[in-house]
Design a protein around this nucleic acid. Structure first.
Lengths: 266, 266
DNA sequence: TCAAAAGTGTTGTATTTACACCCATGG
DNA sequence: CCATGGGTGTAAATACAACACTTTTGA
């Protein structure tokens, strides 16, 4: 993959030494949140796929009525990643194939409308990738919850006073992370099924990176990667010449159980 | 900088669903720790510079007598980064120019000798870079504390039953992070003073990367970077032709106040 | 037979790497 | 004047980007 400069990463404004309210002296509590990305066709953008994520509507103050990342407290008997998985399943019904820690957010003014007596919260945020097919089943489909819905990752909460807390900054940072990581790690396959055409794979890269790629050069780069294996099958039913289906055989760069970007081979 | 494959990053064994003791149901508490790197000449290795870090000896169980990363609890009125800075100053006397979040460690068995009734701890770990000159003054010098000492980053705790808790894994991950990050971000200058010779800068890269670099090509790469500015001064006192001193003028990739790898331009 | 996407070939340019070579200084 | 590190030149190898071109299918 080529080196692409995406500009400076979004930097939370990080009000480090900001005004300190007379908040309770309770120790900060811990919560887990997750940014879950899926690639879905955008009806407002010609049907081209873009990044979407599920959000939950807050039913309590602060930020009542606004959209927030799925999350919840960390219980005593589960690891951070387990907590992320459990909470994800409870709030959205999703079980992502890829899940990795993003960052720990612990600024003093994360709630920007600090209530008196409210406890300060440190959020350890994970990010996840799911396939569009899984995404359809769990949220917003039949039996879907009104308070859980998919939003476009880049514009979520735009016309509604923004997302709750500092969640807009968190999503921006997660977006920056997928975009840079897809360039050097094997994460694109988590958006796709076990077999796929090269055009589908290219669509994933184009959607995440936000620019078009040369089909010819893209094909060559993948053919030089030994982890891409051609199958004997072709995708029928298209309007034109049926493209060959491929399979990814390398390490699925799967779910880093700990720190580190999974495998890093190109 | 060239692309170098450092092998798979060190993966904490991440005992996710490991045996669960009848520990207290208290919510997990939060602590901050820091991995502080400095480049110091290693007497055992020909005087070649290597990465060192300060550790503190534990005076309480568990792991009494063993070496651990400097750290402490997070208080209610400070951000995560402020807590790291404060704790660093208190335990080692260091005020690093570069400080960035590394990872949040929250496995269930981090203390591998779980005491009954001991509370589970989630550690948010930062990593920092300091100059060798600062490093000398604060720890192990005159008036130095016996229970704070510098160790080689790669072998610390080797003959002494290892480091406390999961700190060996944490240090390995931090090492992996410096090594990969020095390839694309402007962090090498934090090991050096305001002016330096190209040979000194090359020594930094060689020490961190663990391999030798071609002086000619190294020079060219830096000259093509507009952020390296030649001064009128030369380093006198050497045994041979005095080398020119240079200055780094670009953004010091300084202390990311929030997530993101600081600036990413090459 | 035509449109459109699949798939191949070719070429110019930038980057990386290896290494030969000259320059300047202290001893 | 010579050993040593500072500093320059050059050419091969590799990787990247642009784009012309052929192939294969459905309609």
């Amino acid at each position: 993959m080529s080196q692409i400069f995406f500009g400076a990463p979004p930097r939370p404004s990080a009000p480090a030494g900001a005004n300190v309210s007379e908040r309770a002296q309770l120790p900060p509590s811990l919560a887990i949140s997750t940014v879950i990305f899926a690639l879905k066709p955008d009806p407002l953008a010609n049907g081209a796929p873009t990044l979407w994520l599920p959000l939950v509507r807050r039913i309590k103050e602060p930020f009542r009525g606004q959209w927030a990342l799925p999350g919840g407290p960390l219980t005593a008997e589960e690891s951070l990643e387990d907590a992320a998985r459990r909470n994800l399943l409870e709030t959205t019904g999703l079980a992502p194939a890829y899940l990795e820690q993003l960052y720990a957010f612990g600024g003093l003014n994360r709630s920007s409308r600090p209530e008196r007596g409210s406890q300060r919260v440190v959020s350890i945020v994970y990010w996840a990738l799911v396939r569009a097919t899984e995404a359809q089943l769990s949220v917003g489909g039949a039996g879907g919850d009104e308070n859980v819905a998919w939003h476009r990752a880049d514009t979520a909460g735009a016309g509604e006073g923004g997302l709750a807390f500092d969640h807009r900054e968190i999503v921006d940072y997660a977006l920056w992370r997928v975009r840079t990581k897809i360039e050097y790690a094997q994460i694109a396959y988590h958006f796709l099924g076990p077999t796929f055409t090269l055009a589908q794979l290219r669509e994933v890269y184009e959607a995440v990176l936000g620019r078009s790629l040369d089909p010819a050069n893209f094909r060559r780069q993948l053919k030089s990667a030994p982890q891409i294996e051609a199958t004997d099958e072709f995708l029928e039913g298209g309007r034109h010449r049926p493209p060959r289906l491929y399979r990814y055989t390398g390490p699925l760069d799967a779910t880093p159980g700990g720190p580190g970007p999974g495998s890093t081979q190109s």
